[in-house]
C-alpha cells in the first residue's frame, strides 16, 4: 500500500460527513470515471456561513480522505474563507499525501469550489 499517513487512514476508515443532503444550498460534482475519482459535495449555507457539508466519493483512499477532510475544514467557515481553502492546506491537514496522490486534494477543493459556485448562482437567480 502507498505510504499514507495515519490521518489519511483514519479518514478512510472513519470518513466524516458522508452522505447526501435534503435541500442543499449548493452541490458540486467533479472528476470522471477514466481517472477513477468521482466526488460530490453538498453544502448548507446560512448567513454566508457553511453550517453543514457532506460528500460522496467514488475513488481511492486519498480521494475519500481528502473529501472527508475538506468537509471538516469548511464547516463553520464563512463562504469567503472557504473559497480560500487550498489543496496544500487539505494535504497538510491530512499530514501529507504521497506526491502521486496530490491530485486527490485538488479534486476535493474543486468539488467545494463548484458547490460554492452553485450556491452563489442559485442565490443570484433568486434575487433576479
Amino acid at each position: 500500500m502507498l505510504d499514507y499517513s495515519d490521518k489519511v487512514k483514519d479518514h478512510l476508515l472513519n470518513p466524516r460527513n458522508v452522505g447526501e443532503m435534503e435541500h442543499p444550498s449548493g452541490v458540486g460534482k467533479v472528476g470522471n470515471p477514466v481517472c477513477g475519482d468521482i466526488m460530490e459535495m453538498c453544502i448548507k449555507v446560512e448567513d454566508e456561513v457553511i453550517v453543514d457539508a457532506v460528500f460522496r466519493t467514488f475513488g481511492c483512499g486519498a480521494a475519500i480522505a481528502a473529501s472527508s477532510m475538506v468537509t471538516e475544514l469548511i464547516k463553520g467557515k464563512k463562504i469567503k474563507e472557504a473559497l480560500r481553502l487550498s489543496k496544500d492546506e487539505v494535504a497538510s491537514a491530512l499530514d501529507g499525501l504521497p506526491p502521486i496522490k496530490m491530485h486527490c486534494s485538488v479534486l476535493g477543493v474543486e468539488a467545494l469550489q463548484k458547490a460554492i459556485k452553485n450556491y452563489q448562482e442559485q442565490k443570484s437567480s433568486l434575487k433576479n
Binding site: 500500500m1 499514507y4 487512514k9 478512510l12 476508515l13 477513477g36 475519482d37 467514488f58 475513488g59 481511492c60 483512499g61 480521494a63 475519500i64
Partner: peptide
Amino acid sequence: EFVEGEGMLMHLDM
C-alpha cells in the same frame, strides 16, 4: 460495481 479498488484494498490491508 460502484466502488473503487484501492479503497477496498486499503480496508483489507488494515
